[in-house]
Design a protein around this nucleic acid. Structure first.
Lengths: 151, 151
DNA sequence: CATTACGTTCAGTCTTGACTGAACGTTCTA
DNA sequence: TAGAACGTTCAGTCAAGACTGAACGTAATG
């Protein structure tokens, strides 16, 4: 493999790790970006030099997030993996879910604290507004970017 | 403290933790959202029941990200902390930096692999395009949301 | 049926980093 | 100048979770 390709894979792994996601998943993602084709689990494990167990865990993780998908081939018992059509959408959407969760947590607290709100200085409303705004914007981003390839 | 306030603090902590950020920092952020006032380091440590050492680390972290700021008061040696005017901007901007970093890593790899690009199936260009698009969109979001309160 | 190949699971290991608390340096005060 | 109060640092502890590898179940193949 080309040194630049190796580097991309490793750096993507570190990037993901720094964001609290499994390093192997990041490396896997980068590999698939570099080679847009079908891989067997074993091939992935070999190329990235990790155990099949780890690879199984991480393919399942990325699959659950809609980043990669499984492909069956007749006459071959093995499962193949490939990038989905729009892995970015999947990743953005998981971000979106997190923001919505935070928005809900804040909204709930604000509701329950409504009585005190008038007395005390709070900035809950402010951050809630921001979250709503951002969520709307992200949705708009998704709509805009994928308008020519609807799912 | 109101149970709902306690809950917000703890949930925000868990949320941050799940995103790979220190739990204490999330709890600290939530506390300041609830009570928009100045805190000493010791008060923060007491209220959240953590050591002063931890609190020192985490206030420095949030300060470096522009989420909180230090305030000096004459006649008081202690340092006070409070939320900045727009902590969300700071948080979005750190996101932005990460995306830019990824974009650069991908761009670099694509450049070095230019020769092979024509031969092989790659999706580097695609993800690079998406990153650029998203970065632009986030900048637009910032501009839009903060247009009435420029820094 | 026996054998082989495959993916998953799980107990155990290891790494990372959050957190503590004592020690330290500094600044203020008496 | 001694003492107290404060914030920071750092060695040490601890927990979370990433990762391994062996064991397992299943399906294909002969």
């Amino acid at each position: 493999m080309h040194p630049a390709a190796e580097r991309l894979i490793e750096q993507m792994g570190l990037q993901w790790e720094s964001e609290g996601r499994p390093r192997i998943a990041g490396r896997l993602f980068a590999l698939m970006l570099l080679q847009d084709r079908d891989f067997t689990l074993e091939e992935l494990a070999d190329v990235l030099r990790v155990s099949r167990g780890s690879m199984s865990t991480n393919t399942r993780l990325l699959e659950s997030q809609g980043v990669i998908e499984r492909v069956a081939k007749s006459g071959d018992r093995r499962i193949f993996y490939r990038l989905t059509v729009d892995p970015y959408r999947a990743m953005i959407e998981s971000h979106l879910k997190r923001m919505e969760r935070t928005r809900d947590v804040v909204a709930q607290a604000r509701k329950e604290l409504a009585a005190e709100t008038k007395k005390k200085h709070m900035r809950l409303a402010e951050i809630e507004r921001f979250h709503k705004f951002a969520i709307t914007a992200i949705n708009a981003l998704l709509a805009e970017h994928f308008k020519q390839e609807p799912r």
